[in-house]
Simulated assay, not measured.
Amino acid sequence: MSANSQLVTIKGTRDGLTLWLNDQCSYDSILQELEEKLSVNGVDDDQPMIRVTIQLGNRFLTDDQQDKLREIVREKQKLVVEKIESNVMTKDEALSWKENTEITPITKTVRSGQVVEIKGDLLLLGDVNPGGKVVASGNIFILGHLRGIAHAGASGNEGAVIAASYMKPNQLRIGSQISRAPDQDSDGLYIECGYVDEKNEAIRIAPLQEVMKQKPDLVSFERRMLNG
């Protein structure tokens, strides 16, 4: 590494400041240059609080090391670390990510009083009868009749969707959003998908093809099925 290489690069964004830390040098060198740069680039007392994002690149830091970075930034008035991001995952984080992105296929009829709850995406080959309930931290895909309750994005993901071959649910839930039950006299819908309409902040039901145009990430479901 050349003597002129910058170990800490500070960039202003519309959301505050981003500190890019070189991931090819020692941690102690980063701390030293960070203290020097923040001292030179001081913040006036009359400026509002500035949010700081720290980008670690391909570097892993322990909780204590991250706390030290926050402490150095916090010593400068009006600066507060909002998040620290890294390209590196811990083993536990990787296992959690894998668990929450896997597809679990289940073949059964979910009857009244029964609850099926999984992490990741649920592919149910069967019906959800009135009074039955399916819950997933990811998406829910039902190759059958949905007449009970379905809760997708149960861990708070309002980008999840619920799709069913025939949809006339008691209730749909996506993240914290809840839809009302349809009128008793209303007909069910075939090959429909429930999702959160971000504009209106409510659950809508639309043809699956329309939803896929708005949520291209759903294509990854097909790829994972083919590669699984």
Rank of each mutant, 00 (worst) to 15 (best):
D23Q: 04
G228D: 06
E210R: 10
H151L: 08
V88W: 06
S39L: 11
Q66T: 07
G153K: 04
R223P: 01
A181C: 10
G188T: 05
A163I: 07
D67F: 13
K199T: 14
Q184H: 07
G144Y: 07
K76G: 00
M49E: 14
D185H: 12
V73F: 02
K108T: 09
K78I: 05
D28K: 12
R147W: 00
T13I: 05
V116T: 13
S29R: 13
L95S: 10
S86H: 05
I191N: 15
I140G: 03
T104H: 08
L17C: 04
R59L: 11
V211P: 09
H145G: 00
W20T: 08
R173K: 15
H145P: 00
K91N: 10
R70L: 04
E201V: 01
E82Q: 13
F221V: 15
L19D: 02
V88N: 09
P207G: 03
G188R: 02
Q214E: 13
Q177I: 03
E75G: 10
I178V: 15
R223Y: 13
A164R: 08
L95N: 15
G159H: 15
L189V: 09
V88P: 03
S220W: 05
S165K: 13
K98P: 01
N227P: 00
A202E: 11
Q171S: 06
G144R: 04
P169V: 02
I30S: 01
G57K: 04
A206Q: 12
V80P: 01
K76H: 11
Q184V: 14
S176E: 00
E222V: 14
A154G: 00
M89C: 13
F60K: 14
W97T: 11
I205T: 15
L218G: 08
Q214W: 05
L7W: 10
Q66K: 15
L31Y: 11
V219H: 10
I149P: 00
T53H: 12
S86G: 03
T18P: 01
A163Y: 08
Q66A: 05
L218E: 12
D217A: 14
T90A: 07
T90Y: 11
G57P: 04
